[in-house]
């Protein structure tokens, strides 16, 4: 997994609440057996004017000029600014895969759906929860400032605005540790293999029907 330490990135605002993972990456692309290549179909139904299919050359499809990610000023954005309950619905990890593959490294919003939030950390993508007032300010500043950028420091747990205003954010220490170092969870968990085996042996005696 790619480590995340600091980021100085262009911000793209997606100003709608309850963005679900079906909208982030529609079902037809879930037929892939790979975990890469989903960037061109991120937000597919909003981004393009036609209905896309897997295997197509997406660069040739008609784009929706009104959709925020198609606007020239947001090209190259690496910070996605969102509203409440982002990533709700399906557990598909194809959603963070698509967001990361598109070029985003951080998502800032008020709340994220639980499964999506957890999936982000497995893919080097940092979801940041901020108070509504701060998010509202970011939307306003972003709308009024071409080339609006934010800097994010995971170690310090801080988002810095261009005007110098610093916003602290919370992140679970364990998740932070994994993301800062780009650690793969499985390797970390297997350090406890003996404990898992002990637990399992005890369970086998106490509830043998679970091991039939």
């Amino acid at each position: 997994m790619k480590a995340f330490t600091t980021l100085d990135g262009l911000v793209a605002p997606l100003d709608r609440a309850n963005v679900d993972t079906d909208a982030i990456i529609p079902k037809q692309y879930l037929k892939s057996i790979k975990r890469s290549g989903f960037g061109p179909t991120l937000f597919d139904e909003w981004r393009y004017l036609d209905v896309g299919e897997p295997g197509q050359d997406h660069s040739k499809r008609p784009q929706n000029p009104d959709f925020v990610l198609n606007q020239p000023r947001f090209q190259g954005a690496s910070v996605l600014l969102v509203r409440e309950n982002f990533g709700c619905g399906s557990s598909r990890e194809h959603a963070p895969w698509a967001i990361e593959d598109f070029g985003f490294r951080a998502i800032i919003g008020t709340t994220f759906a639980d499964i999506f939030y957890s999936n982000c950390f497995k893919n080097g993508l940092l979801p940041i929860r901020l108070p509504e007032k701060e998010v509202e300010q970011l939307f306003l500043q972003c709308a009024g400032t071409p080339g609006y950028r934010l800097t994010i420091d995971l170690d310090q747990q801080v988002v810095r605005r261009p005007d110098g205003h610093a916003i602290k954010f919370d992140v679970d220490p364990f998740r932070k540790y994994c993301l800062l170092n780009g650690f793969d969870d499985i390797g970390l968990t297997l350090r406890h293999a003996d404990k898992i085996r002990e637990f399992e042996a005890r369970r086998r005696i106490e509830q043998p029907w679970l091991f039939a």
Partner: peptide, 13 residues
């Protein structure tokens, strides 16, 4: 419900 990385994690651990 879990994501695919967690599916792999559960399979492995």
């Amino acid at each position: 419900g879990i994501g695919t990385s967690e599916v792999e994690h559960v399979m492995a651990t």
